[in-house]
């Protein structure tokens, strides 16, 4: 079975690195990190992810702007997006992930089980 490609975008490198380590340790995912919002489009073009984990609050181009650009693209708009944010509380979204403006999102801190569960629900296989 082909490993699912996950692009994780967060300005905090240690976070993206740990997501990569944990997801890849399962053997089911191939993960690419990106710490700059304005480089996401290039990464998507290069990596062709099956799902993008996207931090909302980032310096420079934030998650909302990145999402808008992806939505505007004829092919990339179909790539599932999951927002990751520290700005909302778990209770408000439920443990399996809620939706903001049609997008799934997870509240930090998120445990690996939750993360994987959410990826599996949203990923286009």
């Amino acid at each position: 079975m082909r490993k699912k490609r996950i692009l994780v975008v967060d300005d905090e490198a240690s976070f993206t690195r740990l997501v990569k380590f944990n997801l890849e340790a399962t053997g089911n995912y191939e993960v690419r990190e990106e710490n700059w919002g304005d480089r996401v489009l290039a990464a998507v073009k290069d990596f062709s992810p099956d799902l993008i984990l996207l931090d909302i609050i980032m310096p420079g181009e934030d998650g909302g702007e990145v999402a808008a650009k992806l939505q505007a693209h004829p092919h990339w708009q179909r790539i599932p997006l999951v927002f990751l944010t520290a700005a909302v509380k778990k209770e408000e979204i439920g443990s399996s992930g809620g939706r903001i403006g049609g997008f799934a999102y997870l509240a930090k801190p998120v445990d690996m089980e939750e993360l994987i569960h959410c990826i599996e629900r949203n990923v286009s296989a």
Binding site: E12, F15, V19, A86, P109, M112
Partner: peptide, 8 residues
């Protein structure tokens, strides 16, 4: 955010 890193 730091908690998230610790957790992972």
């Amino acid at each position: 955010n730091p908690l998230q890193i610790l957790l992972l």
